[in-house]
Design a protein around this nucleic acid. Structure first.
Length: 702
RNA sequence: GCGCGGUUAGCUCAGUUGGUAGAGCAUCCCCUUGACGUGGGGAGGGCCAGAGGUUCGAGUCCUCUAUCGCGCACCA
């Protein structure tokens, strides 16, 4: 026995050495596994971590879960492939970088775009390197030889090709409509990049000619020259559609036109409103129906334009009260409802109020894509764990609205489109002829990562594609149920005619010990790496798995981690004891049968994705059955000793997916001590999973 | 407003076809220092949020209520 086994288990000394040992074995690449060609493939695509900062506890959870699945399948005889990647994370990374610039007293605005791109690239590549080292330290048995970055040239090219194909198929189109504009970040955002929150906002009633109109946004009302009511509203039946009226308004008299439209809710307010088509989606739609004029009132920075007269140039945040005052002085303010509750959209990164603006953008037509995705779910081609997410998914897909994929930021994949006046050309290369101007916008990051399972398996003609696509499991956070999962399903069906995976496993959030969401502002962020340094990676992995059901949030408590550190040490000590005793001879059938029952139970849990119970059962068996009872008994009855060796060796197999480092380290010790039975190149990582139906003879060296 | 989830021991949570409640940590008692940077044995502690229903039997299925959390939401 080596000296180190006379001391407590030391994860710090062990882990990097074992990881290197695995990596050098080449078995993270499933093509190198024994009899690879006859194995059935099992593929997981890693959600590529954003290469813009350190890994957090959520990453540790998903790496652990996916590694458990991969290791289990690898041992169970599959050609198990786990595909790692890194995401440039367009808007998110640009926001992180802009914050950094801000701290340095700089700003992206006014910078040369090429220069800015270069800086963010350097920043991202540096983070990517750190991130990869951190993924390794968590024990991830992913195939690094197949790693991809979302800005790799082939990914960029394929992303652009998909867009061109969609354009040609009529699924991508250029549209001018009210979009979500973030005045701070100077870009449009998709629906999932905004957050809605209910706010208490005063609701103003103003006199507008013979009408009373209601609004929460007086600052948008300068150009309002259409007054809209429901065609069947009896109160206003004396007014006819198209009728013109002179009304006194904020900056003097204007000519108002009466519009009758069914979008108006007669029950709400006075049943009459004026519209601001440039800055409201609803108003925009009404205006489109009746072919009304559009006029921009607020500029891209959130300041009023010259149409606001004396208020021009003022920030809308400051000006509302002033406008109300003016209207009041003019005798046009009727009353104010102070208790009105209003839903306001915010940029999900900076929380600035979203300003709807009309802008020409690229959109993906969702309806046909969503319909197909829904059918696939209906046909059970994709299932969700936990299954209540299917309902959530369906609701969202049934109500999907067209997806704005244009972003006015440099950090992303360029949209391959060209403009010349009103002409549009979609192509990677510049079109023939003079005067074509490149679209400066980049794709929404989810446009490329939505195709990730395809790209990672070298769609459409790489050698991996026929073997490893469709993949098997998509394991990701439940917060990505809308951002990411539907897009992957839609792109998969659109491009490959297949769903990209058959199972979506959604994990919950990792919260602090009190169950509160971790956030920098609350200063309760737990860095997973400080825990692994202190207690070992295996201990953290068990902490994240045991008792943590899919979809449910987890409270990360340090004492739990400590408990599993003790467990790692417990197995270590079991090994010391077993190896110090005579352990050759016959095994006891009764004890073996009991173990088989456990293995069967654990295997069933593994196949059903019940990792939280599987881990608990094997833990409980090793500590409270094997150590507390069987080994104790063997001290009185030495004839049990060979059985303890057998049970330890096979318990290591069941535990390996959960606690890979300590189990492999012990396995190697057993291999060296057990000179006859285990070949010199034996790795627990690729040992056959213990299956009761197919038990191989107990290994003993007599 | 619509939807989803939780409500089980002091704390954090399991409990997968319904059969008189479990784990870890914490607390208390006893033992152990030649496998154990400690370990072992044992104890206390829960009308499984509430009400009703189905059933021979419900934490587990159905309905309603309360409460907490989350998601979605273009009524000015």
């Amino acid at each position: 026995m080596k000296d180190k086994f006379l001391k407590p288990y030391n994860p710090g000394e062990t882990e990097s050495r074992i990881y290197k040992f695995w990596e050098e074995s080449g078995y993270f690449n499933p093509d190198n596994l024994p009899e690879a060609d006859s194995r059935k493939p099992f593929t997981i695509v890693m959600p590529p971590p954003n290469a813009n900062g350190d890994l957090h506890a959520g990453h540790a959870l998903f790496i652990t879960l996916e590694d458990i699945m991969t290791r289990y399948k690898r041992m169970a005889g599959y050609r198990a492939l786990w595909l790692p990647g890194a995401d440039h994370a367009g808007f998110e990374t640009q926001v992180v970088y802009e914050k950094k610039l801000e701290k340095e007293g700089r700003s992206r605005f006014g910078m040369d775009p090429q220069e800015l791109y270069k800086e963010i690239l350097a920043f991202t590549l540096e983070n990517k390197k750190n991130m990869e080292a951190q993924v390794r330290s968590l024990g991830a048995s992913c195939d690094w030889s197949r790693e991809k970055f979302t800005l790799d040239p082939d990914v960029v090219k394929k992303t652009q090709e998909t867009f061109i194909k969609m354009f040609n198929d009529g699924l991508a189109y250029r549209g001018s409509r009210a979009i979500n504009w973030c005045p701070k970040h100077q870009t449009s955002l998709s629906e999932v990049e905004t957050e809605s929150s209910e706010e208490s906002t005063p609701f103003y009633y103003f006199k507008y000619g013979p009408f009373e109109i209601g609004t929460v946004r007086p600052e948008t009302k300068f150009g309002d020259k259409y007054v809209v009511m429901h065609p069947e509203d009896e109160r206003y039946k004396s007014y006819t559609h198209g009728q013109e009226l002179e009304v006194e308004w904020i900056n003097g008299p204007i000519t108002a036109t009466v519009i009758k439209d069914e979008a108006i809710d007669m029950e709400f307010g006075t049943g009459v409103m004026t519209i601001t088509p440039w800055h409201s989606q609803v108003d925009f739609e009404i205006a489109e129906r009746h072919k009304l004029d559009f006029e921009q009132i607020i500029d891209w920075r959130g300041k009023l334009l010259p149409i606001a007269g004396e208020f021009a140039g003022m920030n809308i945040k400051d000006v509302r009260q002033k406008i109300v005052e003016k209207l009041k002085e003019k005798g046009l303010l009727v009353r104010v409802d102070e208790s009105y509750k209003n839903v306001v959209k915010h940029c999900y990164k900076c929380l600035s109020a979203i300003e709807p603006q009309i802008k020409a953008q690229w959109f993906v037509k969702m309806e046909p894509l969503a319909k197909r995705a829904l059918e696939a779910v209906e046909q059970k081609e994709v299932r969700f764990i936990p299954d209540n997410y299917e309902k959530i998914f369906r609701y969202w897909m049934e109500n999907a609205i067209d997806w704005n994929i244009s972003r006015q930021i440099v950090w992303g994949i360029p949209i391959p489109a060209w403009f010349k006046g009103d002409e549009i050309q979609v192509s990677i290369d510049k079109p023939e002829g003079e005067g074509w101007v490149k679209d400066n916008d980049t794709f929404d990051t989810w446009f490329s990562s939505g195709q990730w399972p395809l790209f990672m398996t070298d769609y459409p003609d790489g050698k991996d594609y026929p073997i490893y696509y469709p993949t098997d499991v998509m394991e990701t956070g439940h917060d990505l149920i809308f951002k990411w999962v539907p897009r992957m399903i839609m792109f998969g069906l659109y491009l490959s005619n297949k769903t990209p995976f058959h199972t979506v496993y959604l994990h919950g959030l990792v919260n602090d010990a009190q169950g509160k969401k971790m956030s920098k502002s609350k200063d309760n962020v737990i860095n997973p790496l400080t825990l692994t340094e202190k207690y070992g990676t295996d201990a953290l992995r068990m902490t994240l798995i045991v008792g943590n059901t899919p979809g449910t949030d987890l409270a990360l408590r340090e004492d739990k981690v400590k408990g599993y550190k003790n467990f790692a040490n417990k197995i270590w000590n079991i090994t010391r004891f077993v190896l110090s005793q005579k352990h050759t001879g016959e095994v006891k059938d009764k004890l073996v049968d009991e173990f088989k029952a456990l293995a069967e139970d654990v295997t069933k849990d593994m196949d059903n994705y019940f990792f939280h119970t599987a881990a608990e059962k094997i833990y409980h068996y090793i500590w409270h059955r094997l150590a507390d009872e069987i080994i104790e008994e063997s001290k009185k009855d030495p004839s049990i000793l060979p059985t303890t060796y057998y049970l330890l060796q096979n318990s290591l197999k069941l535990l390996h997916p959960f606690m890979p480092f300590v189990t492999e380290e012990i396995w190697q010790e057993l291999r060296e001590a057990d000179s006859l039975k285990l070949p010199a190149n034996s790795l627990l990582m690729i040992e056959k999973w213990f299956t009761p139906s197919k038990v191989e003879g107990p290994i003993h060296n007599d």
